[in-house]
Design a protein around this nucleic acid. Sequence first.
RNA 1: GCCCCCAUGGUGUAGCGGUUAGCACGCAAGCCUUUCACGCUUGUAGCGCGAGUUCGAUUCUCGCUGGGGGUACCA
Length: 439
Amino acid sequence: MRVRFAPSPTGALHIGGARTALYNWLLARGAGAEFVLRIEDTDRERSTPENVEQILDSLRWLELDYDGEPVFQSQRGERHAEVVRGLIESGHAYRSTAGREQIDAWKAEHGNRGYRGADEGEGAVRLRVPDSGATVVHDVIRGESSFENALQDDLVIARADGTPVYHLAVVVDDLDAGITHVVRGADHYSNTPKQMLILAAMGEQPPLYAHVPLLHGPDGKKLSKRHGAASVQELRAAGYLPEAVRNYVALLGWGFDESQEFFTTEELQRHFSLDRVSKSPAVFDEQKLRHMNGRYLRELPLDDLTARLEAFTGQPGLRDLVAVTQDKISTLAEFWPLARSFFEGPVDDPDARRKVLEAPGAREMLSEARAGLEAVPEPWTVEDVEVALRGVVERAGAKPKQVFQPVRVALTGTTISPGIFETVALMGRAETLKRLEAA
RNA sequence: GCCCCCAUGGUGUAGCGGUUAGCACGCAAGCCUUUCACGCUUGUAGCGCGAGUUCGAUUCUCGCUGGGGGUACCA
């Protein structure tokens, strides 16, 4: 078995592309087989080095390692030209200048039958498609279906300038690389008979095909930028963990049994199989990803999460803060809003000030709290702070909330923060007293 | 237009002729509680429609409807 992932470098790695890559990778790694990467850069305009690097970067982030170096389709021009030449010589292809209008005219005249041209000795190279019979696609996921040859146009396999067209290039590249399983998006399904026709003309056997359903946005349309995060780069920037993305994406269009949905990478490799891949398109649901990400994030060892958050925010010395916020966040991006007031002072939330600080009795509670906390000697521990603040509550005969909320807002500026004792303890004596005073 | 594919709650899925149609997200309510979360409990909601086949269809067949993809000298 030999499997490949062959993205076209037209921008960031799409989530659907990431899933295809993952399925290929799981298939190969699960079987101890090779997983190779080829870049479909026949269209050189869009194939910038930056686009290629984005794909490699995303693959690295997802920890989908590939064997050898990536192969660029454009590096294989000689070989493609050689195949095209062979096809012309054997009479399987011919050169024609026919364009859109001629083809439409021909079709109008011949019912809906596929275009058949004649050799003109110049123009694009077209493959001669048989007039009878059918090309049957056997697909591991979708079963088999038959496409009538008579309905298929003689397809262009090389442009007038001699450069190969995608269908010719993939077929030849897969063949030469010894690819046994072609797993790709369902948008290639109807193109498969064309590629099989090329293979047949070359006298070769087709590989095993598996077309995975496309990914849709919540509106049922093909997933795109309009739907928010649509690429793994965007997911990364939104603070999702690669292991969570991998797990979630694997589940889009694939299910194992009736209960399990969390899989380690080894489990995924062990259990993944193409015949359990769904035939219908799936909708990318960021809420579910977020939930899954939260579960992964909460199970991370403190040091690990700290390291990731420090890298994500660019802010060192986060360990203690991470310890008190780990339960409250579902993505890395949710950390900073909880932590920023520790570094930048109370945030400006007029709503919280008005509702909490200007509530009746709030000022008294604040000064009580300040007095109570001032009596706590250094070093401040969470326990000491709790004893002190609970003492304030008791002496004032108030509800905990009546004391804790004003203190929280005085220190952080908002009503949303880590636990109040932890917040006070972490902020330290001097800063706490200063902010209470200011409020 | 033509060709091909798909169809279980709002979403992702399990089911592969007989089930109280399972799980998860979401949503709602409750518990916990110093806020927000986390966690726990309960609830909400589904087999697109119509014919067959069968003692019996979510499951098999056909049609319809709906959705998607392809139809480039794009990939």
